[in-house]
Computed example of a mutant assay.
Amino acid sequence: MMDWGLLVLVLVAIAIGFALGRRSTRVPENSDAPALEPHYIQGLNYLLNEQPDEAIDTFIDALDVNTETLETHLALGNLLRKRGEVGRAIKIHQNLLARPGLGSEQSRQVQLELSRDFIKSGLLDRAEMLLKELVETTVHPMRTQCLEYLIEIYRDEKEWQTGIDMINKLPSRRFSRLPDEWRLVQSHFYCELAEEALRRSDYLAARRHLKAASLADKQSARASILLAELEYRLGQYKEAVKALKQVFYQDPALLPEALPLLITCHRATGRLPQLRAYLNELLEQGASTPVVMALAELMAKDEGVVPAAKFLGVSVAKSPSLKAAEQMLSLQLAGYQNPPESMALADTVIRRLQKASPQYRCHNCGFAGQHMHWLCPSCKTWGNVKPVE
């Protein structure tokens, strides 16, 4: 059965046939130009016999490089890159650049495709060199494409400040504001710089980067969580709480990331009753399972495990959750001196299920894992990985 790559090759073959047909109509009958149709027919035979590699080589040999056929060569290179044959794609594009007949605009188009080959093959330094040259010599929209590829390179190389500089060169709209998608990326780049600063205890730099992150994206829950960590390290517990309380309004799905430090700060200041009142307010505003679990933990210490387990049971009945069920059973077992064997067995099973279940999931591509990733390892989008409730 013919796969998608062969199907694309069929379309490319049709395009080549069309180009050869146009060429043949322009060749005088008494011309000594070599007939190309046999090469084309041979390529089709390879294609129909599901020999795509031989077909590609034949089509490339059969087709001259000119204004009319350049797109066909580029399509073949793109096909090879998508099939993972990056070396052959690079060869096609480098051979195109060596042809003297290419115009400056065509040459830049080939250079862009070659830079994509280099990115695909991990030759980021070579891609960067090509793209930086193109940024200086092209105009929109190709210049924008080059900048976007450079931003991806600096993201992968963790050169956050250089990536920010590239983002600032993108075309802006609406009173010189960057498009929202790039403001989001820029905010995460600043957060990465802030995390690096926190690791080396450079709190002034961390605060500066977090301020820039919030200016780029006012809805950045990540910036609020990091700011809270900074304030906590400095002993500014009230300021840390203030930052953490923003998370519910910025991205409620990230509350589980904020709650542990929120509880720690309230304990440090002896304000657990105020925390409990705040969590009840969040429940009234539609907060979900993580808030219920935090409340149950506080209730168990204040009122005992039985009321806390009952409170959790009501929540689990309304919104089933393995995490909440595990906590509920744990509280129930704590209320027994000799717990029933069936209950202990159920607790063991739920713990195993919970341990095997992903703790985080990307809302964009479905990637699942046990650890938080601000940049999804699968689809490479920012801020789409959320805790699983």
Rank of each mutant, 00 (worst) to 15 (best):
M1R: 11
W4I: 15
W4C: 04
V10I: 09
V12H: 07
V12G: 01
I14E: 14
A15K: 14
A15E: 13
R22Q: 13
R22P: 00
T25S: 12
P28C: 00
E29I: 03
N30Y: 12
S31E: 09
A33N: 03
L36G: 03
H39S: 07
L47W: 04
N49I: 01
E54T: 02
A55S: 07
I56L: 05
I56S: 00
D57G: 04
L63C: 02
V65A: 02
V65M: 09
N66Q: 04
T67N: 11
T67Y: 12
E68N: 13
E71F: 11
L74H: 09
L74P: 04
A75M: 11
L79W: 13
L79I: 09
R81G: 01
R81S: 01
R88D: 05
G101Q: 15
S107Q: 13
L112M: 07
E113K: 14
R116V: 05
D117Q: 08
I119N: 10
K120S: 13
L124W: 12
D125L: 01
R126S: 02
E128I: 00
L131T: 05
E133D: 11
P141R: 14
T144G: 02
Q145A: 09
I151L: 00
K158G: 00
Q161D: 09
G163K: 11
M166R: 14
N168D: 15
K169W: 04
R183D: 00
Y190H: 13
L193V: 08
E196Q: 08
S201D: 12
Y203S: 00
A205W: 06
A205S: 14
R207C: 02
H209V: 01
S214L: 15
A228L: 01
A228D: 08
E231L: 09
A253C: 10
A253P: 01
L255D: 06
L262N: 05
T264I: 03
R267V: 02
A268M: 12
L272W: 11
P273D: 10
Y278R: 08
N280R: 15
L283W: 03
A287E: 01
M293S: 00
A296Y: 05
E303Q: 15
E303F: 07
V305K: 12
V305L: 07
P307G: 08
A309V: 00
K310L: 06
A317I: 04
L322T: 06
K323M: 11
K323V: 07
A325T: 14
Q327K: 13
L331R: 14
Q332M: 13
S342A: 12
I350K: 05
I350W: 07
R351E: 10
L353A: 02
R361G: 03
R361M: 06
H363N: 12
N364F: 08
G366Q: 10
G366V: 06
F367H: 14
F367T: 02
H373R: 06
H373P: 01
K380C: 00
T381I: 02
K386D: 08
P387H: 10
E389M: 09
E389L: 01
